[in-house]
Design a protein around this nucleic acid. Structure first.
Lengths: 102, 102
DNA sequence: TTTATATTTGACACATACTGTCAAGTTATA
DNA sequence: TATAACTTGACAGTATGTGTCAAATATAAA
């Protein structure tokens, strides 16, 4: 099971790119990218878009990895994690069909 | 589809309890409880336990509502919310079967 | 209406967590 | 050993969350 960091690092190395090059393209400090690749920090959504571009990854796929990482990390220690996911699914379905006007 | 806040408020009123009484039992300011019931703030886990006690609610059920609320709120605006949930489920399964030693 | 009680609201201080920046450190490679 | 690539940790700035409090509003009883 690959983390976002692993996906990013693998693809970068496949393409023979340096941290310096990718971080310049994404316009972040290379220290940050280094930490992202080792899952020590989380990328922002904007970063994900640029990363997908330069690393020739599917942006949506990357976003899914990103979000699922966040959720999994957040609740993995809960006994009721799976039940909560099911309920969350229903809530999302409901919320999407009953949009809130703000 | 009930939010945590609604569940808490409904049950409190069913039992004929005042904000003041419940908040004293839970040991929080009644302003906070008021906001929790209107989903303006989120309870902590400790609060949930005490709330379940005094309101005669099932603690696990309340926790599930709590976590699912958090997840749903977090990703409801993502197009890929459902896919992300599925992937999160797999990740959690994986993480639980491959515990990390820290 | 007045009075008392219940709830809501907003401002505040405090703590915690997140972000980007930087320089010094380590590792790997030529 | 020298150079380039990467990692680490400290730092300041910002944002976000938390509890406290008093004033404002709503509700209900007299």
């Amino acid at each position: 099971m690959e983390t976002i960091g692993q996906i990013l690092r693998n693809k970068r190395q496949e393409l023979g790119l340096l941290l310096r090059q990718v971080s310049a393209y994404v316009d972040i400090d290379q220290a940050i990218l280094s930490k992202i690749e080792r899952n020590e920090r989380k990328p922002t959504k904007e970063m994900l878009g640029r990363l997908a571009e330069i690393l020739k990854l599917d942006r949506d796929e990357l976003l899914i990895q990103f979000i699922s990482d966040k959720i999994a990390y957040e609740i993995v220690n809960e006994d009721c994690a799976n039940k909560a996911l099911k309920v969350a699914e229903r809530k999302i379905k409901y919320l999407k069909s009953h949009p809130v006007i703000n």
